[in-house]
């Protein structure tokens, strides 16, 4: 069970030598309706790289992701113990300000959820909430972020149309741009391509790879091939525990744990 610790510590050390990790999880335990969903999670997620959380469905991957920006808070009957440090600050500390924490992390959900407003307003929603009122600045933000996700050419003539007029793939890119507009440091993706066609999936994957030089990216995925394509590190979660954590090629080609081996070979899913 604890083979991952040695690997994880090694990673952690190399990371801390360079700089403080963006996200560090210490002794995290999550109970939902009395069930122990996440057990003793200890992790340091490497900066400026893509880390994929993989594991069979119902193992707690999404819960793990959502504890990172405190979105679990809103679900009823949830008990969270332990700490999640973002830039060294515990986001579960009593005085932690939740909107401030969430602003640091862009979230890309399973299906695109454009806000019920125009394309333009979707992007400016975040910046406006955080006090940006200057029209020229807002216009600039819209253009930059839409260019960032390769959507500008496709939508520049209909910025004021409803966001729901876009295709699903375009909507997901819009959601990514919307998240980037609040200048986060971290991007969280919860099976973000599961509703998309192969071409849109590829676009999103390539975008994430381009973005990792500036952001720390954590993805939940149930597609091993996707984890192989995009991620630098893999966390394998099984039954609420982290079984293995390490570089993508190590986990996929040379798993240390028997369960990881079976999962990677496709015997459990």
């Amino acid at each position: 069970m604890h083979t991952y610790t040695s690997l994880a510590t090694k990673e952690t050390q190399t990371v801390t030598q360079m700089q403080l990790p963006h996200i560090q999880i210490k002794d995290l335990n999550v109970h939902i309706e009395g069930k122990h969903i996440l057990k003793n999670i200890n992790l340091a997620i490497p900066n400026n790289s893509i880390t994929s959380i993989i594991g069979p469905s119902g193992c707690g991957k999404t819960t793990l992701l959502k504890t990172l920006n405190r979105l679990m808070d809103d679900s009823k009957n949830v008990k969270i113990n332990g700490s999640v440090l973002v830039n060294g600050e515990d986001i579960y500390a009593k005085d932690a300000e939740v909107t401030h924490i969430r602003k640091k992390m862009g979230l890309l959900s399973q299906r695109p959820f454009p806000l019920p407003m125009s394309i333009f307003e979707n992007i400016t929603y975040g910046p406006r909430i955080h006090g940006q009122r200057d029209k020229t600045v807002l216009k600039e933000i819209v253009e930059t972020q839409l260019k960032n996700v390769g959507l500008w050419e496709e939508v520049k003539d209909r910025l004021h149309h409803s966001a729901t007029t876009l295709s699903i793939g375009q909507q997901q890119r819009l959601c990514l741009a919307r998240g980037l507009a609040v200048q986060p440091e971290i991007i969280l993706g919860d099976e973000s391509t599961s509703a998309l066609d192969p071409i849109s999936t590829q676009t999103i994957e390539n975008l994430l790879i381009d973005l990792k030089s500036e952001y720390t990216i954590v993805l939940v995925t149930h597609i091993l091939r996707q984890a192989r394509r995009v991620s630098d590190y893999i966390i394998f979660v099984y039954n609420g525990e982290i079984i293995e954590f390490g570089k993508t090629e190590d986990i996929l080609l040379n798993p240390q744990n028997e369960i990881t081996k079976q999962y990677v070979k496709g015997f459990i899913s």
Binding site: N69, K103, R111, L115, Y125, I129, V182
Partner: peptide
């Protein structure tokens, strides 16, 4: 998830209600 989208951008619950849910 629509609420989560607004919250994850740093909106408060009330801002989410006013600008997203009610709309």
């Amino acid at each position: 998830d629509l609420k989560a989208a607004s919250l994850s951008l740093g909106a408060t619950r009330w801002e989410t209600i006013q600008k997203v849910i009610l709309k």
